[in-house]
Design a protein around this nucleic acid. Structure first.
Lengths: 221, 221
DNA sequence: GCCTAGGTCCCGTGT
DNA sequence: ACACGGGGCCTAGGC
């Protein structure tokens, strides 16, 4: 990894055109070819960047970075280099995440009745014309139930499930299909919209699903 | 800006749980309190991070970073510090962009007939109760046409235009208002949903709109 | 290779 | 303060 602190001006041209006026920035040149230009403020995002793999040319005081198979170009005009160091970082190791939507979906697929009613899983990722339903289940009466799973339940999730239900119910055999929105937390506005569309909301807890904790006494809805 | 290169292990706990095993990383501590942990590969995104403002404590060899009003916590255990420098970056300047959705809207407002039918602009940003329609036009027959403009046309854009049309058509004078989705590219699922709602799709090209290139022989739909 | 959906999305804007 | 929408979104997974 090469770290440059330099007074520079940057121009990006590709999906859009952008100019970054001259100032002191941090330039990060990674082993995989990615280039990031960071400011001392502005948080998480680089001001300009190019993801690897890239081709790099040094034409005098101008660094030109190009993508392999696109017209994207990053031009860095170096006016004054304040620091320029190369660091060998050795081998790395990947980030391990837990608690994303995928984990929730796996746990609910294994025990769909955690949604607060007796359900049997029929299929995960059931395809419709407008996208896949997370879980398709059947209830005690043999009626279909479509489950949409989110980490956070928003109005948008209700809209999504509504779209799915519209297409699913076109099949006469599934005309009575119900909808359930499952999430670790559900926004009040989403609950209101779901109720108006007769979609049931179920807040689920990762620790409970894993049997690490007892379920709350009160369930949603 | 403080730049640390160090062998370290990082744990994030908050919206999810994540562990980053011990290895050499670049730590960026910005003036606004943001903390970024970057790898020598993996491109644009930091492996772990916290956006400012934050509170930071140094407990022995452990750096604990917390958000002001959330339970988010970042724990950085420093095993070996290879480099630790502070850089004064002085004043900065903002990025200037060109070619985003707003630019497309300006060009289409100037020549709405680029949408593939004879149209006359009545108003940009026509207000409805649920938000502004990008362009309100009239066609040859004097019928109203509401145009939603995106850089990329998705299902979400179709939903948005559908909401607008619902409110617009409540006015008897505009009960026959048609909808057009205009974008530089439109997703197949969005086309399917648009067709089911009798919304026309029009793919437009920035270069053509600017008169830099001839229009294609074939138009959408 | 393209396309779709998720993200600790981030980040501005408006209410 | 919180919801909404755009982003050069980025990035992983499916086909």
């Amino acid at each position: 990894m090469r770290l440059l602190v330099a007074r520079c001006e940057v121009r990006y041209s590709g999906r859009l055109t952008a100019i970054l006026p001259e100032a002191v920035r941090l330039l990060i040149l990674k082993a995989d070819g990615s280039v990031l230009i960071h400011d001392d403020a502005g948080g998480y995002k680089p001001l300009n960047w190019m993801t690897g793999p890239t081709f790099m040319e040094e034409l005098g005081d101008v660094l030109v970075v190009r993508k392999a198979k696109a017209e994207d170009t990053l031009e860095i005009r170096l006016v004054e280099v304040l620091s320029d160091v190369v660091q060998d970082m050795g081998e790395s190791a990947a980030l391990q995440k837990d608690g994303v939507e995928r984990d929730l979906q796996e746990l609910l697929a294994a025990s769909p009745s955690a949604l607060g009613e007796a359900l049997t899983l029929v299929k995960r990722e059931w395809a419709t014309e407008v996208g896949p339903v997370d879980l398709m289940c059947k209830d005690d009466d043999g009626e279909w139930v479509a489950v949409e799973i989110k980490r956070v339940g928003t109005i948008e999730a209700v809209e999504q499930l509504t779209r799915y239900l519209g297409f699913i119910r076109e099949d006469p055999a599934k005309a009575g299909c119900r909808g359930v929105l499952a999430a670790q937390s559900i926004k009040p506005q989403a609950v209101a919209l779901a109720e108006s569309r007769e979609i049931r909301c179920a807040e689920v807890d990762l620790a409970v699903l894993r049997g690490e904790r007892e379920p709350d006494l009160t369930l949603f809805g």
